[in-house]
Write a protein that binds this DNA or RNA. Sequence first.
DNA 1: GCAATGAGCGTC
DNA 2: ACGCTCATTGCT
Length: 664
Amino acid sequence: MAAKKETGKTERTLFPADVNPVARIAVDNPLPHLDRPFDYLVPSRLGATARPGARVKVRFAGQYLDGFVLERAAESEFTGELAYLDKVVSPEPVLTPETSDLARAVADRYGGTLADVLRLAVPPRHAAIEKEPHEDLPRKRPDRPDPGSWKRYPAGPGFLDAVAGGRPARAAWTALPGDWPDEIARAAATCASADRGAVIVVPDGKDLARVGAALEAIGAGHVTLSADLGPAERYRRWLATLRGETLIVAGTRAAMFAPVRDLGLVVLWDDGDDLHTDPHAPYPNAREVLALRAHRARAAALLGGFARTAELTQLAASGWARPLEGDRPAVRSAAPVVRSAVTEAEFDRDPAAAAARMPVLALRTLRKALADGPVLVQVPRRGYLAVIACVRCRAKARCPACGGPLRLTGANEVPDCRWCGAIAGGWACPDCGAAKVRAVVTGADRTAEELGRAFPGVPVRNSGGSSVLQAVPEQPALVIATPGAEPFASYAAGLLLDGWALLGRPTLRAVEETMRRWMNAAALIRPGGTVLVHADPGQPVVQALIRWDPAGFSARELADRSELGFPPAVRMAAAQGTSDAVASLLSGVDSAYEILGPVPVESPESPEPAADGMLPEEEVRALIRAPRTEGTALARALQAAQAARSLRKEGGGVRVQLDPADLI
DNA sequence: GCAATGAGCGTC
DNA sequence: ACGCTCATTGCT
């Protein structure tokens, strides 16, 4: 291999390293058709530091780009002249072979590029943190903990035995109401007692705090990783994990790539939460990544939550995972008593009235429970009156300026527009001329106001939006929360309001998502406490909640989706971009795939002109459907189509997303 | 017959 | 996004 002679006059001549002078580099370049390793020569002065996993800088197509050393080799297959790598940014081997293989698999699973996944998997460097002195003490092997409340599950102790024995048991976990953070902590500590690492992923900081506390409580050494730590502390903990100073890592979704040593167990809590999907290309989801990771590492997996997703039911149906759930007696002793807040008779007599007002039964139930402790009221929407309509003709109130939906932010406020923010003072119905509005969707603020009046003297606490309460004291209080923001407590009763708003959303997952939100709230109510659900009692999802039957509900949901040809019964991909760009991408995809659309995408939430005053070009979206067994082929086909587009230097990017959340 | 210019392609 | 190659153009 001939080293390129340095042409610069001031540059001195470089010599390749004596040993393994070739470095295969994963270059951080954004082009899909260049998504492969490139070989560089290692100059002799970098022979020792340019080791596998190290961050480097290389000259690539005339630019200085970041990269990672994948491996060192004696020779290169490349027939042209190799360039020298420019710089070793840091010899710290931050990209382990496991992470680089996993990132490649994730990129292939999602039709994306390695560079995009590596940006997620390896945090940005923080030089000062790398230089800090650190312990090189051998970690001490903890004792195996007691199974604790895993005894509630018939298959629980057996699962822990498998983890302790290093066997790759994989569980589709339907958690019983109770101390799930403690159960996760015990599973992770069991894994650590076998001297293997565990990765725990939860949706948000509130759940992470609980898992962290549970690990602490049983004395299991661990670190927590979350975005809100700040770059320095985050990198410090990530490095500690990489260096094998801890066996247990718990975190939010980016922790799915945490480089724990000797992975023995992956845990995912509440796998249906959309926070588990990373919002950057290629949009990987923690359930899929952890399943892939567990599979590759031959590690055990504990995936689930109170509710059950169709995806997890599919994993169980395919035999990849085994159900891990309570039997009926266990459910009866752990779950609250769920009832409908309106009777079928009330509902049949006047559905609109049943939906609109606070049920009498609810007020009675709350009053009684408030003597025993806090009560939880779940309200699907934030704000005051989130959607309003004409008082007379019931037409939705729209913004005179842009046609967006109007709302009220307080009792004595003027309506404003949710899209453009315009104040609609002096609003009058364009259809009938009436100047007053009525509530269509009541927000948490208004509910808090109403309940505060109904129960004078009882403290009212709001949790939602930007102010989420971690926990509330076990004292009588009305706790009003939006879904996912419920503070932790042992509530005396629960009220799930406005099921109509949740169930009525026109998305594929509306019903499954409603069940998940309800179960997450209802599981906070004491065993035997009352939960009232304010929704059409005839709906199967309401009946499933009343029976506390998430698995049965999910089986039915999966069957429905199979019939309709929807995920996870099939693999689906979405391609979005300008009309020309999407058309050119689709022309590069095998015509054997079924293509739905393209159709224009819905008007954005705020259709404001761009900074240059130009209206953004209309985008379209197409869906591509493939049989479930051809998911890998579909992803590869889309990867190839993107590569062909980028090779032809076609402008106008197309966003490709596999398993898109919003299908309708 | 050959320099000057620009489009197209590969990127180690 | 740079820089190399090669074809076309314009002028001798």
